[in-house]
């Protein structure tokens, strides 16, 4: 590719090519890891969806196998972090953010159901893990990094996963009633409203976070309607423990 004239230093295009090739190599490595992570994500999701057909009292096995699935995901995230350790974080972040959001969602949902007790954080049904707790669970992954360029969980990723959790809980509220659990919809209602109130103080711009967070109100309404239906028919448990 040597240039016939002296105008173009042949080294220019040689080094451009090698940069392109290096870039492609990193992408290939990431893709390989993501293939596994994506499958693990689907498995975890499938197990977790068992929560919709399992009474709260019998959730233990569902949570146990979810935790196992999450352990596999955490391993993949570790691989992702080391494969990209030498690259600028935001250069490739777009490739995996969706899969990472899925993992964070699995962690949040499992935690809300009372699981994740073996991951070194305090657990309790109805609990929302903070972004810091999620980072700790994912084997000490940093969160919201600002002064250091390394793999981490971003605020946006956490919030996206939180919206997915809200949507999932709205569905769980319906299915809880089907399972004869009239207490859980109340618990979900309070939780969903509290999260919704949080989202309302964010000044979101016209991005995907904004679009999805606009949908939270429909989840809130869905759950409110269930609570209304229950209270109309006097199905709301009287001995009301406070929602956490």
């Amino acid at each position: 590719m040597a240039s016939p004239s002296g105008t173009i230093d042949p080294k220019i295009f040689e080094s451009l090519q090698s940069k392109i090739d290096d870039d492609a190599e990193v992408r290939d490595q990431i893709r390989e890891i993501l293939q596994v992570l994506e499958r693990q994500g689907r498995t975890a999701q499938a197990i977790l969806s068992g929560a919709h057909s399992t009474p709260a009292a019998h959730l233990e096995p569902v949570l146990k196998s979810t935790e196992d699935a999450i352990r596999g995901e955490i391993e993949s995230i570790g691989k992702l972090a080391s494969a990209t350790a030498k690259s600028p974080y935001y250069k490739y972040n777009g490739m995996w953010t969706r899969d990472v959001q899925n993992v964070v969602f699995a962690v949040l949902f499992c935690g809300w159901l009372g699981g994740m007790g073996t991951f070194g954080v305090a657990v309790e049904p109805g609990k929302l893990f903070t972004i810091e707790e999620v980072g700790k669970i994912l084997n000490e992954v940093p969160v919201n990094l600002k002064d250091q360029d390394a793999f981490h969980i971003t605020i946006e990723e956490y919030l996206q996963s939180l919206i997915t959790l809200i949507e999932e809980l709205a569905r769980l509220a319906i299915n809880s009633v089907t399972l004869g659990d009239y207490h859980r919809p109340l618990q979900i209602s309070q939780f969903v409203k509290d999260v919704h109130a949080g989202f309302q103080i964010l000044n979101l711009k016209n991005d995907s976070l904004r679009r999805r967070s606009d949908g939270i109100k429909y989840s809130v309404k869905k759950v409110e309607d269930i609570v209304y239906d229950l209270s109309l028919r006097n199905l709301v448990p009287r001995a009301e423990p406070t929602a956490q």
């Binding site: 605020i155 919030l159 309070q190 509290d194 109130a197 409110e224």
Partner: peptide, 29 residues
Amino acid sequence: RHHDGQPKETDSRTSPFMPMFEVFRNELD
């Protein structure tokens, strides 16, 4: 919504997640 949603909670209860969201708001801003 807190007021009309949960009649049993008469005190104006704020979401326990507010401090967390305030941090997020500042970061996102």
